Simulated assay, not measured.
Amino acid sequence: MSSATRTKHDLIARIAAINIAVSLTVVTLKYVAYAVSGSVALFSDALESIVNVMTALAAYGAIRWSSKPPDSDHPFGHYKAEFIAAMFEGAMIAIAALLILYKAYSGLVHGVVFEQPGLGLAISVLSTVINGGWAWALIRWGTTHRSPALVADGQHLFTDVITSVGVVAGLAIAVATGWYILDPLLAGAVALHILYMGYRIATDSMSRLMDQAASPEIEGRIRGVIEANGHGALEAHDIRTRQAGRALFIEFHLVVPGSMSVDEAHDICDRIEHSIERSIEGSEVVIHVEPDHKAKPEASGAVPL
């Protein structure tokens, strides 16, 4: 692993460690908001943030594990550990949703008594502002550094922000109008929303664990780089990609003239590999060289050179 790659891994790990501290701060604020107000809706918000702490810990562990270099048992590295953390996050969200639904049902049956709703709302607004800023930063950094665990955490926090805004607005209406039944109803709506988001995070991570291909935009860039740097070869075909955490594995067949020497073909491969790896961060390229009678101009996605 190069020093630049190691530095990037360390940076992502530091961000994940800070994420744990931010999550602990937010969950403390939200629990205080629930404790002083007695609101079931604010309880649901606090419970989701407890899940945030658990998933922040899982994300940190996965990021540290995924940064380990390849070994004899894992020659392609440990990148997929981040997808496992994202799936764990989806499962934890689902559990939190069920607990919130139970609390909301209890509030509907037994009623809710507010104590200091104004103070609770003020503390909840503060925690929401912190969460919103941090969610934006996590998604931005996770996308920049190709970290699925950070992106998943940021997306989860962003849904937390959306639900918190809804809870605060609804609770303010309930206090102003005296319609206290809105409180457990809001908690139920929060539960259903985060249950859906947990499902989306888990299914997306499962798809990537099953070697999901790169996006059409990335695959288009790969073909463009091959076309621009493949002079001397005749064609590239059977281009395949698979995403594994921050790594993107790319492989394809490169057709060269049958009379070309091994050295010449190797030089072309080196030129293409280096160009792709410079253009697409985290890419690892494998090229299979074939003689001209193996050309497949009719193949889908073939790149004539």
Rank of each mutant, 00 (worst) to 15 (best):
S2Q: 11
S2C: 13
S3Q: 15
A4L: 12
T5F: 12
R6V: 15
K8Q: 08
A13Y: 02
A13R: 09
A17R: 09
L24Q: 07
T28Q: 07
L29E: 03
S39W: 07
V40L: 02
L42G: 07
I50C: 10
L57M: 03
D71S: 01
Y79L: 09
E82R: 05
F83R: 00
I84T: 04
A86S: 11
F88L: 08
G90A: 12
G90C: 04
M92F: 15
L98C: 15
I100R: 10
K103A: 10
K103P: 04
A104I: 11
H110W: 01
L121V: 14
L121Q: 12
L121N: 12
L126A: 15
S127Q: 10
T128C: 12
G133F: 13
A137H: 09
I139M: 15
R140C: 09
W141C: 08
T144P: 00
V151M: 12
D153A: 01
Q155K: 07
V161Q: 08
V161L: 10
T163E: 04
V165Y: 10
G166Y: 11
V167K: 04
V167W: 06
V167Q: 08
A169I: 14
G170C: 09
L171F: 05
W179Q: 14
I181G: 00
P184C: 00
P184N: 05
A187P: 13
G188E: 08
A189M: 14
V190C: 02
V190Q: 11
V190N: 09
A191M: 02
I194F: 01
Y196I: 09
M197E: 13
M197K: 06
G198D: 11
R200H: 12
T203M: 11
D204P: 07
R208V: 02
R208D: 00
M210G: 02
M210D: 04
Q212N: 03
A213W: 00
A214L: 03
A214V: 01
S215H: 07
E217R: 01
E217A: 14
I218E: 03
I218R: 02
E219L: 10
R221W: 08
I222F: 11
G224R: 12
V225T: 06
N229F: 13
L234K: 15
H237F: 05
D238H: 11
R246V: 13
F249N: 00
F249K: 03
E251R: 11
L254M: 04
V255I: 09
V256M: 02
G258A: 12
E264I: 00
A265E: 03
H266K: 04
D270C: 09
R271V: 07
I272T: 06
S275R: 10
R278A: 15
G282T: 00
I287K: 06
H288C: 09
V289M: 10
D292C: 12
H293V: 05
A299V: 02
A302G: 10
A302M: 15
V303T: 11
L305Y: 15
